[in-house]
Simulated assay, not measured.
Amino acid sequence: MNPMALMKLMSAKNKFNANHPKVGAFFKAAFGSGLQEGTILELTVTKPDGEKMTTNLKVKPSDLELLNELRNMSNK
C-alpha cells in the first residue's frame, strides 16, 4: 500500500475514533473473544428524518479471513 495513502487512512481512523470513542469499545467488547463462523451481525441505520433501514449477515469463513487481514494491516 502507498505510504501516503496509509498515513491518510490512519489519520482518518484516528479522527473517527476521536469523534466516536464508544464504537471502538463496543467492538472490543463484542468481538474481543473472537468472532466465530455463524455469528449474526445486524446493522440499523436511522436517518435524520426517522427512516430506518436494517440488514444482517451470518459470518462465513471468508468474512473471518477478510477481518483477519484487516486486523493484520492495522497492527503494522
Rank of each mutant, 00 (worst) to 15 (best):
L66K: 07
L41Y: 05
A30I: 00
V23I: 06
K76E: 06
M4P: 00
K52G: 00
N68R: 05
G32E: 07
M10R: 09
R71H: 09
Q36R: 12
L35Y: 03
A25Y: 04
E37A: 03
K58T: 14
T55A: 10
L64W: 15
A29Y: 01
S33Y: 15
F27H: 12
T44R: 09
F27W: 02
M73T: 07
S74G: 14
L9P: 10
K60H: 07
N56F: 08
S33P: 07
I40K: 03
D63S: 13
D49K: 12
K28V: 10
M10T: 08
P3M: 08
K47N: 02
K60A: 11
M10P: 08
A5K: 07
T39L: 12
D49V: 09
L66G: 00
E37S: 04
V23K: 14
A25V: 03
T39G: 02
T54R: 04
A18C: 03
E37I: 13
K13D: 09
V23A: 15
I40F: 02
L35Q: 12
T54V: 08
K47S: 11
L57Q: 10
F27Q: 01
M7I: 08
G32F: 07
A25T: 07
D49R: 11
K15Y: 03
K22G: 04
T44C: 00
E69P: 06
M1S: 05
N2W: 14
V45K: 04
S33F: 11
V45G: 03
L35K: 05
K60E: 04
L41I: 12
A18S: 03
K58C: 06
Q36W: 01
E42L: 04
N68D: 15
P48S: 12
L6Y: 02
N17E: 08
E69L: 07
F26N: 03
M73E: 06
K28S: 12
K28T: 13
L43F: 13
G24V: 14
T44D: 00
N75V: 12
K8G: 05
L57W: 12
N72L: 07
F31A: 14
N14W: 02
T54A: 03
L57A: 08
V23M: 13
S62C: 02
A29R: 11
A29C: 04
A18M: 09
K47R: 11
K22A: 10
V45L: 13
F31H: 15
A30K: 00
M1D: 02
F26H: 09
P21S: 02
V45W: 13
K76W: 14
D49W: 15
K13S: 09
M7P: 00
L67M: 11
S11Y: 10
M4D: 04
Q36F: 14
K22F: 01
M4T: 05
K76Y: 06
R71K: 13
H20P: 01
N56S: 12
K15P: 13
A30M: 02
L70E: 11
P48V: 06
F26D: 11
G50N: 05
A29G: 06
L67Q: 01
S62D: 09
M53E: 11
K76D: 06
K76H: 14
N17K: 05
G38K: 08
L41K: 02
M7E: 12
F27C: 00
S62F: 10
M7G: 10
D63R: 11
M7S: 04
